[in-house]
Amino acid sequence: MSTKSIYKGSRPISSFLLRKPKVRLISLLSLPMTWIVGVYIVSLFLLLITAFWNVDPFTSRVRPGFTLENFILIFTVPAYIATSIRTLFIALSVTAICVLLAVPLGIYMAKIANPRLRNFLAVAITLPLWAGYLVKIIAMRLVFTEEGFFNWFMAPFGIRGPGFSIPIVILTLTYLWFPYMALPVYTAIRQIPPNLFDASSDMGAKGFTTVYRVVIPLIVPAIIAGSVFTFSLSLGDYLAARFTGGATQMIGSIIAANINLNPPVAAAYSMIPIAFVVIYLMVARRTGSLERM
């Protein structure tokens, strides 16, 4: 069978596309472009526009217009500023705890554990991803109620949980987003050639020095990748705060409260987490780790 007959006879679509490179390009890109432009960019744009609109004081209906009042509100009302700082603190704490847990776990899984234990741990990390997000939050709520599992289990040691508050929100978010940090870190550590460890040891480095001087620099891109998830997902969350935070208010809580009552304020306030993430990515880019991702 000659090449020609394949194109002309049995594969009409392929041969047509081969002859028309423009059609080929359009058909290849149309679906992802529709998604990015039509769904993603347009909705972001609409969100940004709404931030400049105002609402009818009586019916709470949104009216097109132009006002900077919503932004002024966000930067002048102490409650909004305090909430932004609090949310930033929570997101950074969650990210830091995830890194502190993921690195030793990744080293253990990749370099020390036997294959069976390694597989078991990999499954254990990913298994919570199979449960619903809300289910996990409610589970944390039930664990930390006054008469919940934590206080019951810790009672013999005379320890009582802090009740619903910021520490429990941080714990819940860490639990929710840990797999997104643990998996890239683990994969990155696995890819470090074993002879680097040998070389480090030959040069006289002890365990911690090897981790600090060899492993960490090599997995920084993975940590950054994971932290983008843990950081940005924590910034946007509000259900963890609602169910496990007691009176704790996060950026998401204010957006959620305003989405029904004052959508322009919600839209303007949603620029804050976007700004935080952009700044975070710019700092990450400065370290050069984005290029190596």
Binding site: P57, F58, S60, L73, Q249, S253, A257, N262
Partner: peptide, 15 residues
Amino acid sequence: TSFQEWTNAWATVKG
């Protein structure tokens, strides 16, 4: 005060 003012005021309660 209108409901809109109530809404804005409510946001300041929780800090």
